[in-house]
């Protein structure tokens, strides 16, 4: 499944954040969105995931249009995301955060919650799946710790696990490597490559150009609300004007 948008426009109090953006991220690959701060990258992410209404434009997941859908419906269409500020439920355990993310839980229905028909079995299954994902990201040792006690890097791994638990086809990650230790960053990059191998599409916003060179299949460069360049990293990142403005 790919994700694409046409004609996205958004301004805040007269300042143009996005001016007519139309992009398409290839299916099953890793796309990086780069550009200077304030270029509109996070605005784009917020619009695509339904958290912000644009002034104009349409966007699609695969063949299905998701224009104007609220965030929870976008997530159910197979598109999950992380946030620049790590968002988690700090008061519950790591395991519970991931179990929360599991979709289609009958235990989330009122009658089932009160009468507890079939919930125990489903919870056991949720727990197994959640544990498997924690193992995948390398947090199995922190399973029963409160999420608020994790280090920043661990929290980022946890948000990735939560993203995956929601069973998406596409992951949109907002600066997944920002502020983490180089070891954790390398770990995250490895995980993203594995996720790609599992057939998912990954789109991430980043400032870390080395990382982009390493794993991205496609790069989109956004500056001042418009797409300045897009293409494979070898091609885009070696253009002199791109190098000068954003990479150096």
């Amino acid at each position: 499944m790919n994700i694409r948008c046409t004609g996205l426009r958004k301004s805040f109090d007269g300042v143009i954040a996005l001016g007519n953006i139309s992009v398409q991220c290839p299916t099953g690959g890793i796309t990086a969105i780069i550009g200077p701060n304030g270029a509109g990258k996070t605005t784009l992410l917020n619009i695509l995931t339904g958290f912000l209404s644009p002034d104009a434009g349409r966007w699609f997941v695969g063949e299905r249009e998701i224009t104007g859908l609220p965030p929870y419906k976008v997530a159910r269409m197979g598109l999950t995301r992380t946030f620049q500020d790590v968002r988690l439920i700090s008061m519950v355990t790591v395991l519970e955060n991931v179990m929360l993310a599991r979709p289609d839980q009958t235990g989330e229905g009122l009658l089932h919650a009160i009468l507890r028909i079939g919930v125990a079995g489903e919870e056991a299954c949720n727990q197994r799946e959640a544990s498997r994902l924690l193992q995948f990201v390398g947090l199995e040792k922190q399973t029963n710790e409160r999420a608020g006690t994790l280090s920043y890097g661990q929290q980022k791994l946890l948000t990735l696990a939560c993203c995956l638990a929601a069973q998406p086809e596409i992951l949109l990650l907002d600066e997944p490597l920002a502020g983490v230790h180089t070891d954790t960053a390398a770990n995250i990059l490895r995980l993203l490559q594995q996720i790609r191998q599992n057939g998912k599409t990954v789109v991430f916003v980043e400032h870390n150009i080395a990382a982009v060179r390493e794993i991205a299949d496609f790069v989109i460069v956004i500056d001042e609300g418009t797409v300045v360049a897009q293409g494979p990293p070898r091609e885009v990142l070696n253009r002199p004007e791109i190098l000068e403005a954003y990479v150096a």
Partner: peptide
């Protein structure tokens, strides 16, 4: 705003 969702008192930047 934001489909009426309340975040942890931080805006969605």
């Amino acid at each position: 705003g934001f489909f009426g969702l309340r975040g942890r008192r931080r805006s969605l930047t």
